[in-house]
Each structure stands twice: as structure tokens, then as C-alpha cells.
């Protein structure tokens, strides 16, 4: 092994050994970090395919039977449908309303705009589902929206909108106005400008917000937990929780298959965004 000359002139073999030891320790630490993050996840990878899943992580005795159990359980597939409905509705509300608001706020000077944006930013960070669960529950109770999936979507959308407006407004602010002006000079009406120019150009921003809203609503537990009573209407997050907290022996084949099915869309959407747009980092995104 040829030692780097710089190292040998300075400290001889001792320095080389030091470098090697440091390198080994460094990778040992990285392995430890990997183990810390990977170990809890392993169960989700193996158990769903195990003929007799237990809480222990082990290579599965391969089967797909566990997924067949989902059809027999009265709530499993229904809850996934509920999740699709709630997440879809929330996503549409957030994308459409945030896009309209962000565009108008970016391009037209509405009186009090800056104060409004500031207040929105403040509110969205302080009024969280947890801090406001009591008044939200009471409000929905008064509005007769307890046990309504649309009600859950409305509350989720209300919480996600301010951040969505912010991110999209930043996105629009960074888009040159000359695109729209150019179209207007050629005679396009305002709505034509929106349809022909703004919408296509804003598409990456809209897609990011759509995925972000979907992931957030899909993973929601608290709001659905406090607003929905009927298990027929509960989304997967709540049903998953009842699966492992209801009395008696936990049904591990069901839980494992169900949790994998519930997890896949999130992972898929993450991979999609990562591939399509790169995982661009917007400070402060996470509800």
C-alpha cells in the first residue's frame, strides 16, 4: 500500500493509520444511522408477505394471502376509498383555490395584500389541528358536519391553503410577467392568457402543491379521528389505528397487508415528484 506522500512526510505511518481509523469510524457511524432509520421500517417490508406474520422481523415464508384478507374485512377497502375521497377532495380544493388566490395576489395589487399575506402566514403556523381541535370539533358539530367526509376535507383544506397560497405566490412571483404581457399585446383576453399561458407555465408548481396536499390529507389522522364517528366513513389512517387498538389479539396478517397498501400511494407520489421535478425543498412545508 503506497501512503500519500503528504501524510508520510508530516506524520509518517501514524497519520495514515489515523486517516484509516477515522474513515472506519465514519462509516460505522453511518451504518448506525442507517440501522436506526431502517430497522423500524423492515416489518412493513416483510410481514405483509409472511404466511404467519408476527411482530418479529424475519424473512417471510412468502404468500399473498394476507392481501386477500382485506376483502373480507368490512372496513379495510372502504376506508381506502374514504381516504381517496377525502384526499382527492382536499387536493382539488387546495389546488384550485390556492392557484386562483396566489395568481391574483401575485399580479394584482389588492389593498391590504401584504398585511393579509402576513396574517395568513402567521395563522397557518399557529392554528394547528391540535391546538384548535376543540373549536373545530364544536364548529363542525354546530354546522352538522360531524361524520361528514366532506367536512374533514374542508377542515384539512382550510389548514393547508395558507401555505399553498404562499408557495404558489412565490412561484408566480418568480415567473416573468412578460409571458402574459406578450400574449395580451397579441390580443389575448385575460381568460385566454390564463388558459394559454399561465396555467401551462405554472403546471410544475401546481403539481407540487397537488402532491403535497394529497400526501398531507392521505396521512391525516387527527382531524378524521375527531370528526368522524361512523367507521364506515373513516379513512385508512383512523381504521389502521382501530385495527391495532381494538381489544383482543391484533390481526397481524390484516394489519400488515393493510398498512402496506395504505403506504404505497405516498411512496409512489414521492417517487413521482422526485423523478419529475426533483425534490425541491420549500422551507416550511409540512402541516
Amino acid at each position: 500500500m503506497s501512503a500519500p506522500t503528504a501524510a508520510s512526510t508530516r506524520g509518517g505511518d501514524g497519520a495514515v493509520v489515523g486517516v484509516v481509523v477515522r474513515r472506519v469510524l465514519f462509516y460505522a457511524a453511518i451504518s448506525l444511522v442507517m440501522a436506526f432509520f431502517a430497522l423500524p421500517l423492515l416489518w412493513l417490508v416483510f410481514a405483509p408477505f409472511d404466511r404467519t406474520p408476527s411482530l418479529t422481523v424475519r424473512l417471510p415464508d412468502f404468500t399473498l394471502d394476507n392481501f386477500r384478507l382485506l376483502q373480507d374485512n368490512p372496513y379495510a377497502l372502504t376506508s381506502l376509498r374514504n381516504s381517496i375521497f377525502i384526499a382527492g377532495t382536499t387536493m382539488v380544493l387546495v389546488v384550485v383555490f390556492a392557484a386562483l388566490a396566489a395568481y391574483a395576489l401575485s399580479r394584482v395589487h389588492i389593498p391590504g395584500r401584504d398585511g393579509l399575506l402576513y396574517a395568513l402566514l402567521l395563522l397557518s403556523s399557529i392554528v394547528t389541528g391540535t391546538a384548535a381541535m376543540v373549536p373545530i370539533f364544536l364548529l363542525m358539530f354546530q354546522l352538522n358536519l360531524i361524520d361528514s367526509r366532506t367536512g374533514v376535507s374542508l377542515v384539512l383544506a382550510g389548514g393547508l391553503l395558507p401555505a399553498a397560497i404562499f408557495i404558489l405566490k412565490d412561484f408566480m412571483d418568480a415567473t416573468p410577467r412578460s409571458y402574459e404581457e406578450s400574449a395580451r399585446v397579441f390580443g389575448a383576453s385575460p381568460l385566454q392568457v390564463l388558459r394559454h399561458v399561465v396555467l401551462p407555465i405554472a403546471r410544475p408548481g401546481l403539481a407540487t402543491i397537488a402532491v403535497w396536499a394529497l400526501v398531507n390529507a392521505w396521512g391525516d389522522f387527527l382531524i378524521a379521528f375527531i370528526l368522524l364517528r361512523d367507521p364506515e366513513k373513516s379513512p385508512a389512517g383512523v381504521v389502521m389505528y382501530t385495527f391495532y387498538t381494538e381489544g383482543g389479539q391484533a390481526n397481524l396478517p390484516l394489519i400488515s397487508a393493510f398498512s402496506l397498501l395504505y403506504a404505497i400511494p405516498v411512496v409512489a407520489m414521492y417517487l413521482f415528484v422526485n423523478k419529475r421535478y426533483g425534490f425541491r425543498f420549500h422551507g416550511g412545508i409540512k402541516s
Binding site: 386562483l100 388566490a101 364548529l139
Partner: peptide, 28 residues
């Protein structure tokens, strides 16, 4: 830039504000 005009701009902002107002500001 798109010649939206104040009236249309206000109409664009309103739905979001209503939703945020009802389910975020009011509860607080």
C-alpha cells in the same frame, strides 16, 4: 400582467379566504 382587473382578482381570492376564514380563523 394578464389584465385581470381588481374585481376578478377579488373574486379569485375570495373562495380561499372564505375557507381559511371559516376553518382556521374562526375556530381560533
Amino acid at each position: 400582467a394578464a389584465g385581470l382587473g381588481k374585481a376578478r382578482a377579488t373574486a379569485f381570492v375570495t373562495p380561499a379566504l372564505l375557507l381559511v376564514g371559516a376553518f382556521l380563523v374562526f375556530p381560533a
